[in-house]
Amino acid sequence: MSTPSENSGFSRRRFVERLARGSVVAGAAAVARGALQAAETNPFAYDVGPLAKTDPAWVNWHEVKRWSVGGRAPRRLAFGPGDVLHVAAESQVLRFNREGAALPPLATTGAVTCVAVAGDGTVYASLRDHLEVFAPGGGRSAAWESPGPRTWISSLALGHGGLWAADSGARVILRYDLGGKLLGRIGAREPGRNVPGLVVPSPFLDVKVHPDGLLRVNNPGRHRFEAYTADGECEGTWGAPTAAIKGFCGCCNPIALAVLPDGRMVTCEKGLPRVKVYDAAGELAGVVAGTESFPANMKAGGAPGRGGLDAAVDSAGRVHVLDRVTATVHVFAPGKAGA
């Protein structure tokens, strides 16, 4: 079993001793490791949880309906005559009547980013770099020339006898006549005219025509929306950067605008997906829907191609919000829920 020499006993004792000592060291290390792992929260969490909670006191709209548009990757909404809702989605303009029933869609030649509908039913749909026009009957009647290589049209609005197109790529608003002639560009940085310039980190530039005759344009990089005359004079700005409910959160919000019949502005944000109403003075007048209404959108985040909302207002003053993540339209009416 062992060599009958004198020091073998000694060695064996030593061997056991060493083994014990080794295991104590290993055990101590394991205990120390356990102590280190006791932390349960993520020390690196970028936690927007507390900021995402909406104070119910502000919510003075309630959801009356929600339905799925069924299309892939919907981007923007617009109402046409008779409250027909037009949804720009993939390479189609989907159309729905008042009840949410689908009408025949219009097919575009590529991914459509936004849409506007004239009072006679003419549909202007924009692809990334150019516009396509559909006659009231539904047939494609024209495709307009692309205004430039950087062009990335993200919103359309009709007014002042022509068409306004928000070009996120060139960071300007393009003005067209209805024949497709490019009349001019407004919103470019002009310190002399007190035009600060549009800061558009991602393709969410929006333009709306307000009943007061001015354009409303969001300036996401500066966390506000601005009013422009048709000539490009900047007449006013509203909004401030903050994750609190009164301002615009994140790095580039608001991402979409809509105008209520009484002239108040509806804004949409990404990151913390929420829809709010601002009065003429730019004060928060209420929250249409907080992050709680868009859990999937909240989860997806606001990176372009992932999240985002868009809003449109129908003739009855109800706000239709498109959740790009779930491809769902939520319809909100004024008044607190249950009231």
Partner: peptide
């Protein structure tokens, strides 16, 4: 590599 900034950029920004 804690990804704190990544989350901030992905949630609100361009990723």
């Amino acid at each position: 590599g804690c990804a704190k900034c990544v989350e901030g950029c992905t949630r609100f920004g361009n990723g």
